[in-house]
Design a protein around this nucleic acid. Structure first.
Length: 263
DNA sequence: TCAAATGTTTGATC
DNA sequence: GGATCAAACATTTG
């Protein structure tokens, strides 16, 4: 489910429910989602109090009075307030006033406890909404590969996934195969601005619900209705009418308009 | 039955 | 060492 706008939507909706509450009990049922010693993780969590819910890129950081709960939604993770646990519930937190339920069909997500900054954070680059243009441009400059896979590289920039990489490149009229290091400062600035504008607009629409993104209440986002290229292969470009193309780049489906985004 | 799916890590290759 | 690419992970859906 998750790219920056979806994760932000989940963080905002869940924060309103759980901030300030204490954790009274925890059930962890997936050794894939929760690595390591689960009993130890439960022991560390029970009795602590949630002080804040933050996001860095696609990572959710639930700050506790002692330590931190790290959640990554992977591809199919949901974080729901007061939902009934079901077949795909991989973690259930009993809080003072209700249940926080983590569901994840494919189990690509993570629910882990860390006493201090999780090691994952050291591996990821600046958040896509917080990076400034000079460092964005400097990071592009260094690379010679295609821009699309580079936008997906979380160590360069964190938060952008397959949908918003395609949408931002379309908005900036840049072909996904363009070599990153060869993009002029002017065009890079356009990409930077369009990327941030796309992410912010998507947050306003509470993210894209392509398969199973929902917020803490279980409500889907609406931004999928506004996609210009993602998932629109063969359909006419909203700007010029040419059929949207789908290729595979860096193992990911990549959608673009061959006329608006020339190589 | 096959392909594809919002992601990340790991290992191979150049 | 760095960059790049494919495979693997687990499950559903069209």
């Amino acid at each position: 489910m998750p790219e920056l706008p979806e994760v932000e939507t989940v963080v905002r909706s869940v924060a309103a429910y759980i901030t300030g509450q204490s954790i009274e009990a925890v059930t962890l049922s997936s050794h894939r989602v929760t690595r390591g010693d689960r009993d130890h993780t439960i022991q560390a969590l029970v009795g602590s109090t949630i002080s804040a819910v933050r996001r860095h890129g696609k990572q959710i950081l639930i700050e506790l009075d002692r330590g931190l709960l790290y959640i990554h939604l992977g591809m199919t993770g949901n974080l729901l307030w007061n939902a009934s646990p079901g077949k795909y519930s991989r973690a259930v937190f009993t809080l003072k006033d209700g249940l926080l339920v983590y569901n994840d069909i494919r189990q690509f997500g993570r629910v882990e406890f860390y006493p201090e900054t999780p090691p994952h954070l050291a591996r990821v680059g600046p958040d896509a909404l917080r990076i400034d243009f000079p460092s964005f441009f400097a990071r592009l400059k260094k690379r010679q590969g295609a821009i699309k896979p580079l936008l997906l590289d979380q160590s360069i920039l964190s938060g952008v996934g397959n949908i918003y990489a395609d949408e931002a490149l379309f908005a900036a009229r840049i072909h996904p195969r363009t070599r990153a290091g060869r993009i002029s400062q002017e065009r890079a600035l356009k990409l930077y601005r369009q990327l941030q504008a796309t992410l912010k607009l998507a947050i306003q629409h509470r993210g894209s619900s392509i398969s199973n993104h929902v917020d803490a209440r279980g409500d889907p986002g609406q931004y999928q209705q506004m996609h210009a290229v993602y998932g629109r292969a063969g359909e006419p470009c909203l700007v010029c009418g040419s059929p949207i193309k789908r290729i595979v780049l860096g193992q990911r489906g990549t959608h673009y308009c061959p006329r608006c985004q020339r190589a």
